[in-house]
Simulated assay, not measured.
Amino acid sequence: MLWNVDLTLVDVAIVSRDAYAEAFRAVTGRPLVKLVPPMGRPDSEIVFETLAVNGIQAEDDHLPRFLSALAAAFADRRGRLAKEGRMMPGARDALKSVSRLDGVVQTVLTGTVKSNAVHKLKAFGLDKYIDFELGGYGEEPYPKATLLQVAQGRAKQRLGTPFTAANTVMIGDSTRDVQAAKIGGAAVIGVASGRSMTSELREAGADLVLPDLSNASEVVAAVAGLTSPAGRKAG
């Protein structure tokens, strides 16, 4: 079970922007004027686009330096996450309820770097439901669809079970999440809690779309249905 983080489980956009601004200044020596919107993209992609829109010619060492600076800047602000951010409606109950399903292991597939993903979920007490070692993260040099397959490979190595669209489910709020899941080989539940509307998530190919995570029973039923023989046949 793969969860997107931002606008699916938590919203910490204010803190994230501040961390990006500090990292940008640390790497370029200039103030950040414009930060490109995440829209489901990994930090590695956001970094390059942000450099470009701010008139910085990317060099070979810019990405690793920026990601390192971003992780440090975000860690310095972790105390602000619960105060200035929010947990998305129903996130805790959804994670807790899904964790009770037999055979389910929950991790994340996120555009954010690993350390920041841990800080984001830990701030709201959601980290205890997540196996972070099996996930896929924004500092890894893969598109999100490939990153999903990397996460499946990690799970197979740990658990000894091959993971395919028949036994892998992703939950995300953006059309990019949906597209990555379909290309990478996972069933996908869209939640219209982020910037993508219900109709957009459906058009992108989501197997199911929920308004948010506030109905934990509905989330559990969706996950169970998509991983059951009947659910796979219907899909």
Rank of each mutant, 00 (worst) to 15 (best):
K34W: 08
G29P: 09
P38I: 13
L35Q: 03
D11G: 02
R30N: 06
R17C: 08
V36F: 02
P42K: 01
P38H: 14
L32T: 04
P31T: 09
V36C: 01
P38K: 12
M39I: 06
D11Q: 12
Y20E: 07
A21M: 12
L35S: 06
I14A: 15
P37R: 02
D18G: 11
E22N: 08
R17F: 14
F24Y: 10
Y20W: 13
A13D: 15
P37W: 04
V10N: 02
L35R: 00
T28N: 15
K34Q: 14
A19S: 11
A19L: 15
A23C: 10
A19G: 08
P38F: 13
G40V: 04
V27C: 05
A26V: 05
M39W: 07
A23N: 05
R25M: 12
R17A: 10
D18E: 11
A21F: 03
A19P: 13
I14M: 08
A26I: 04
A23S: 07
D11N: 08
P42W: 01
V15F: 13
S16I: 10
M39E: 13
V15H: 11
D18C: 10
V33F: 12
L32S: 05
V36P: 08
A23T: 03
E22L: 08
L35G: 05
A21L: 02
V15D: 14
R25G: 12
P42F: 01
V33I: 09
V27T: 07
F24R: 00
L35K: 00
V10D: 09
I14K: 09
R30K: 02
A26P: 07
A13K: 06
D18N: 10
Y20I: 08
